[in-house]
Simulated scan of single mutants.
Amino acid sequence: MYRRLLLTALGTGAAAAVAGCTGGDAGDETNQGEETREADATYTVAVGSTDDYGPVLVDADGSSLYVFDEDTAGESSCYEGCAGTWPPLTVDEDLSAGPDVTAELGTTDRDDGSAQVTADERPLYYYDGDDGPGDTAGQGVGDVWWLVAPDGSKIRESTTEGSLY
């Protein structure tokens, strides 16, 4: 059910967005209305830089990626309405890591059969409230959605003084 790829860092990217829900629909096991964002044949997860949170994992276009506290190792719990707000990062084929990515990248199977990208077994998501590369509006939403550091850990604190996270 879960397959992993241990990859070495291959490239750098700009910051961008991946998102999730606040938990309301997280346990729903149906896929009705679910949105996903698919990557091309070879997909790169990279490291981007943000002013408030430092280096974060981003997709090939520089959109920020997020993890959800309600997920278990290698398994997504974000479906239906949740996945509409927090679309999963999915891939069709090969996955590669940018040069500064030290997290173990892999995939996990979603209920619809798609392969969702994981970092250290945590499923990765976009946030539909991010408008483009460098946006981090999903950070801390519901106190369950977090940006991801290059090593796969959750980012809970801002690098700027006076942060609420």
Rank of each mutant, 00 (worst) to 15 (best):
Y53V: 11
G54I: 09
G54Q: 07
V56K: 06
L57K: 10
V58Y: 00
V58G: 13
D61Y: 00
G62L: 05
G62I: 09
S63T: 13
S64G: 15
L65M: 05
L65R: 02
F68T: 08
F68M: 14
G74T: 08
E75G: 09
S76N: 09
S76G: 05
S77C: 09
Y79D: 11
E80S: 15
G81Q: 12
C82T: 07
C82L: 06
T85V: 12
P87F: 02
P87M: 06
P87S: 10
P88Y: 02
P88G: 11
T90A: 09
T90C: 05
V91W: 00
E93L: 11
E93I: 07
E93W: 03
E93S: 15
D94Y: 05
D94G: 01
D94E: 14
L95V: 15
L95R: 06
L95F: 00
S96C: 04
G98Y: 02
P99C: 00
V101R: 01
V101P: 00
V101M: 01
V101D: 08
A103H: 08
A103M: 06
A103R: 04
E104N: 12
G106M: 06
G106V: 11
G106C: 10
T107V: 15
T107M: 05
T108W: 04
T108F: 01
D109T: 10
D109I: 10
D111G: 06
D111S: 13
D112Q: 08
G113A: 13
G113D: 15
S114I: 05
S114R: 15
Q116R: 05
Q116F: 10
T118C: 11
T118F: 03
A119V: 01
A119G: 08
D120R: 07
R122E: 02
R122G: 04
R122C: 05
R122D: 05
P123F: 00
L124K: 02
L124A: 03
Y126C: 12
Y126F: 15
Y127P: 14
Y127I: 13
D128I: 12
G129I: 09
G129Y: 03
D130E: 04
D130S: 13
D130W: 02
D131L: 08
D131K: 11
P133R: 14
P133I: 06
G134K: 13
G138A: 08
G138S: 11
G140A: 13
G140E: 11
G142A: 05
D143Y: 04
D143S: 13
V144C: 08
V144K: 04
V144Q: 01
W145N: 14
W146N: 09
W146F: 04
W146E: 02
V148D: 04
A149N: 10
P150C: 11
P150M: 10
P150Q: 08
P150S: 12
D151Y: 01
G152V: 09
I155S: 02
I155K: 03
R156Y: 07
S158N: 12
T159I: 14
T160L: 15
T160Q: 15
E161C: 08
